[in-house]
Design a protein around this nucleic acid. Structure first.
Length: 418
RNA sequence: GGAAGGGUCGCAUAGUUGGUCUAGUGCGUUCGCUUGGAAAGCGAAUAACACCGCAAGGUGUUCGCGGGUUCGAAUCCCGCCCCUUCCGCCA
C-alpha cells in the first residue's frame, strides 16, 4: 500500500508504474473517492465539534440536551456515508502497486528481464547426462513413490546422501550468514492471517496458501512472512536499524494453478526447507538499494561455495509483483532439466509491506517513519539438489559431493548402493 | 480440553460510583545546566493518526476490535479477537 499523499503528489509516476506493471487501476475513481472522503471527514468533524461543545457543559438544560441528540443523529448519518466511501477507497488503495526503481527495465513479460551477471563454468559432459530424477532413483536418493503414497501429489522422501546434503547445505548457509552478522532465527511456519495481508500476499494469493481451518492458521510459503511481520505494530529505534536476519523454516505451497508444470522431480514441491534473509531498514532509499545488493552477493556466495554456475536476472516491471521496487532472480544452471532455473529471489519493497504491518521508527527529529523491508533466499532445498546432482554427475553413474558438503555427507562421492 | 486474570501514550504501569482523563507516574528519548571530558545530579520537553492551513496553529479520532446505552464512555451493557497464569495432555 502506498501513501495517498504520495499518490496525489506523484500521480503520473504512480500511473506509469501501474501501466508498466500490467496492473489496471482506476485512478480517476480513486482520486474522486479521496476527495469525497476528505470532504466528509471535514463535515463530520465540524458536527462533532459542535456536539462536544454541548457535552462539556454538562448541562441539565432540556433544549441543549435535545440539540445534542439531534447532532448525534446527524453524525450517525454522515459516518455511515463516510464508511461506505472509505471501504471503496481502501479497496482501490490496495490495488495500487509500488513504484519500480529507475534501474528496472520496462517490459510486459519475462522476455524483458535483463541478465546482469553470469558466473561459473557450465559443465561439458562426454557422456549423456541424466536428469536429477534418474540420478536420484539410481543412487536411491529420493523415494517419490512412497512420498506420494504418504503425502499425496508432489510428495517425496529425501533419502541417504540427499537427506544429508540437504541438512548440510542448510546448515552451511545458515552459519555463513550468521558469520556476516545476521541474527539467526528459526521461524514459525504456522502463521496468523494478518501476516499474509501484511506481506502483500493477501488478498491476491489466497489459493496458494494452506489453511488450517480448524485453528484459523495458515502455513507460510516462506520465512519472509513470519520474519517481516516480526516487528508488526512496533516502533523501533533508528539506531538499531538496519536489522538483519537469517531465518530457517519449512515452507508450504499449494502450487494451485500450476498442476501441469514440473509435475515430476524436485523442482515444484508442496513442502520444502529454506533459509531466508530478511532486512528491516530505515527509510533510506539509497541505503536500502545497497542492502539489496548485499543480499544478492550473499546468495551468489552460497552458489559459489557450491561451485554451481548461475546467472542473475534483473526483473522487468511486468514480471515483478505489486510490492516490489526492485527484484533480482538468481537462476542456477540445471543441465538436463532445461538450462537455468530460479533458485533465489531477491526483493526490495520500500515501505509497501511495513506500511501494512505498521512497522515504524522515530527519527532523531522525532518524526515517525515507516521502515523499509527486503528479503532474499539464501538457499532453498531440495530444489538446489537438482543443480548439484545434475552438475556433479560423472560418466560412471556416480555423483561427486561438493567440497563444502563432504563433511556433512561423510564422503566425497555418492556411489551405487550394492 | 477445564479454571481464573488481563489487553491504557516507544516500554512498564495508574486510572472502572460515566463528565477538567484536554490520560497521571516511572523508564527511555531529546534539549539545557553542571564538567577538562564523561557518568551521576538538576531543569524542561516528549502518544499516534486523520482532516483544514503557506505557516503559526486549529479541529477530530484512538485507551484490543466491533456494536449498544447516554447530552457525554478508558470507565456501563452485548459480541468477537488476543495475551498471561494454573490444571490436564504431550515431543
Amino acid at each position: 500500500m502506498l501513501d495517498i499523499k504520495f499518490i496525489r503528489e506523484n500521480l503520473e509516476k504512480v500511473k506509469k508504474a501501474a501501466t508498466d506493471k500490467n496492473r489496471k487501476v482506476d485512478f480517476d475513481k480513486l482520486l474522486t473517492l479521496d476527495e469525497e472522503r476528505r470532504k466528509l471527514i471535514t463535515e463530520v468533524e465540524k458536527v462533532r465539534a459542535e456536539r462536544n461543545k454541548i457535552s462539556v457543559q454538562r448541562t441539565e438544560n432540556r433544549e441543549q440536551r435535545d440539540k445534542g441528540k439531534k447532532l448525534k443523529e446527524q453524525i450517525k448519518i454522515l459516518e455511515e456515508k463516510l464508511k461506505t466511501v472509505e471501504v471503496d477507497f481502501k479497496n482501490l488503495m490496495y490495488q495500487v502497486p509500488n513504484v519500480p526503481d529507475k534501474s528496472v527495465p520496462i517490459g510486459s513479460d519475462a522476455s524483458y528481464n535483463k541478465e546482469v551477471k553470469k558466473w561459473g563454468k557450465v559443465p561439458k559432459f562426454d557422456f549423456k547426462p541424466l536428469d536429477h530424477i534418474e540420478i536420484a532413483k539410481k543412487l536411491d536418493l529420493v523415494d517419490f513413490d512412497r512420498g506420494t503414497k504418504i503425502a499425496g501429489f508432489r510428495g517425496y522422501f529425501l533419502k541417504n546422501e540427499a537427506a544429508l546434503m540437504e541438512m548440510g547445505i542448510l546448515a552451511h548457509t545458515f552459519k555463513k550468514l550468521v558469520m556476516k552478522g545476521y541474527t539467526p532465527l528459526i521461524a514459525p511456519s504456522l502463521v496468523r492471517e494478518f501476516t499474509l495481508f501484511g506481506n502483500g500476499q493477501f488478498p491476491w494469493g489466497r489459493e496458494e496458501v494452506y489453511l488450517m481451518e480448524k485453528d484459523s492458521l495458515y502455513l507460510a510459503g516462506t520465512a519472509e512472512v513470519p520474519v517481516t511481520a516480526y516487528f508488526a505494530g512496533e516502533v523501533l529505534k533508528e539506531s538499531d536499524l538496519p536489522k538483519k536476519y537469517v531465518a530457517f523454516s519449512p515452507c508450504f505451497r499449494r502450487e494451485a494453478g500450476s498442476y501441469g508444470k514440473d509435475t515430476k522431480g524436485l523442482y515444484r514441491l508442496h513442502q520444502f526447507n529454506k533459509v531466508e534473509q530478511v532486512i528491516i531498514n530505515k527509510n533510506d532509499y539509497q541505503g536500502s538499494l545497497e542492502l539489496h545488493e548485499e543480499l544478492l552477493r550473499n546468495s551468489e556466495e552460497v552458489l559459489q561455495d557450491l561451485k554451481l554456475p548461475f546467472r542473475v536476472m534483473l526483473m522487468c516491471t511486468g514480471d515483478m509483483g505489486e510490492p516490489q521496487v526492485k527484484k533480482y532472480d538468481i537462476e542456477t544452471f540445471m543441465p538436463v532439466r532445461g538450462g537455468y532455473g530460479e533458485t533465489m529471489s531477491n526483493s526490495f519493497m520500500g515501505d509497501f509491506q511495513t506500511r501494512r504491518l505498521n512497522i515504524r521508527y522515530k527519527t532523531a527529529k522525532g518524526e515517525m517513519e515507516f521502515t523499509h523491508s527486503l528479503n532474499n533466499t539464501a538457499v532453498a532445498s531440495p530444489r538446489i539438489l537438482i543443480a548439484i546432482l545434475e552438475n556433479y554427475q560423472k560418466g560412471d553413474g556416480t555423483v561427486e559431493v561438493p567440497e563444502i558438503l563432504q563433511e556433512y555427507v561423510g564422503k566425497k562421492v555418492i556411489t551405487l548402493k550394492k
